[in-house]
Amino acid sequence: MDPQELRTLANAMRRRDLQAVFEAGAGHIGGEMSVMDILCALYFHTMSVDPNAPLDPKRDRLVLSKGHTALALYVVLSEKGFIPKDEISTFLKPYSRLNGHPNRCKVPGVETNTGPLGHGLPVGVGMAKAAKLDGDTWRTFVITGDGEMQEGSNWEAIMAAAQFKLDNLTLVIDHNRLQQGARLADTNDIAPLPPKLEAFGWAVEEIDGHDMQQICRALSPETAVVGKPKCIVAHTNKGQGISFMSDNVAWHHKVPNEEQYKQAMAELEGAAL
C-alpha cells in the first residue's frame, strides 16, 4: 500500500475502534487513536506476516507493550485476516477472547501477553536475541507508550539490546505526551527521549507518528544501523482525528456518549475524504 492508501485504511480502522468502544462501554480510546497509524504501517507495509500461518517461525514479530490499547491491535488483526472482522463486536463481552489486554493463547497474531507496563520490551529483546542466535533475519518490533518508558525494566532491556548489538530490533515509542490521569511532564518527565536512547548506544530517529510516509521510511530495513538497535520516537496525539479527544488527558480511558460518538464518527469520516 502507498501512504495515501495506508492513511485511508488507518482512518477506517479508527472508526471501527470507536464503534467497538462505544458498543462495549469501555476501552482506552485515546491511546488507540494515537497508535493506529503505526500499527497500520507495520501490518500493511512493513512486517512479513501471514494470517494463514500465524506461528511461522520466519515471521516478523510485534509486541504491543502498551497492552491496554489491545482493541486497536484486534481491529488491525481482523483487517489483516488473523481473526474474523465481525468478531470485533464481541470485544469485552462474556466469553469473548478479545479481552482488555491481548492474550497470545487465545488470539492468533498476538505474540505475547501484555498489560503490566514495562514488560514488552524485555520480551522483544529476547525475541531479537533468539533470531540472532539462530542466524535468522526476521525482525522484532515493540511499541511502548511514553509514560511506560518511566518503568525501569525498559532501561535494563535497552542496555541489554545495545550490549547484544540487536540491529534486528526496533522500538517505537508512541510519544503522545499523556498518560493515565496526567501529562507526562507533570509526573516523571523523561522527555526528551532521543538523547537518552542515544546515550545507551541506540540509533534514534524522530518522526511525526501520523505521517505515513515518515512512518514507513523509519520502519524500513534500509534505515537500520549495523550493530545498533533502533528507536523511533513517534510524536503523536492522543485521540488523533477527534477534535474533543485530541491531546486531552480525560480520554485515556473514557467512553463517548451518543452525541459525542456521532460527532467523532463524523469527524473521522470527513478526514477520510
Rank of each mutant, 00 (worst) to 15 (best):
M212D: 04
K230P: 12
I190N: 02
A162R: 01
A191P: 00
I215A: 01
T187A: 09
F200C: 06
V142I: 13
T140V: 15
D208W: 02
P192K: 05
D208L: 03
D186V: 08
G135E: 13
E156Y: 02
P195A: 05
P221V: 13
T223W: 08
T140P: 03
L197I: 11
N154R: 04
G147M: 11
Q150E: 15
G135W: 14
D189I: 05
V142W: 05
K228P: 12
W138T: 09
P192D: 06
H175Y: 12
D167H: 02
A182F: 03
H235A: 11
R183T: 11
V204H: 01
A161Q: 07
H235L: 14
D146M: 08
V204S: 12
G147R: 07
S220E: 11
W155V: 09
P195H: 03
V142Q: 00
I143R: 06
K196M: 11
L171G: 01
W155K: 05
W138F: 08
G201F: 04
P194C: 07
I232F: 05
A191M: 02
Q180A: 10
N176D: 13
E198K: 12
M159Y: 01
P192S: 07
M212F: 14
V204W: 02
D134T: 13
G147V: 12
I143C: 04
R139P: 03
R177M: 11
E151P: 10
D189E: 14
G181M: 08
Q179Y: 03
L169N: 00
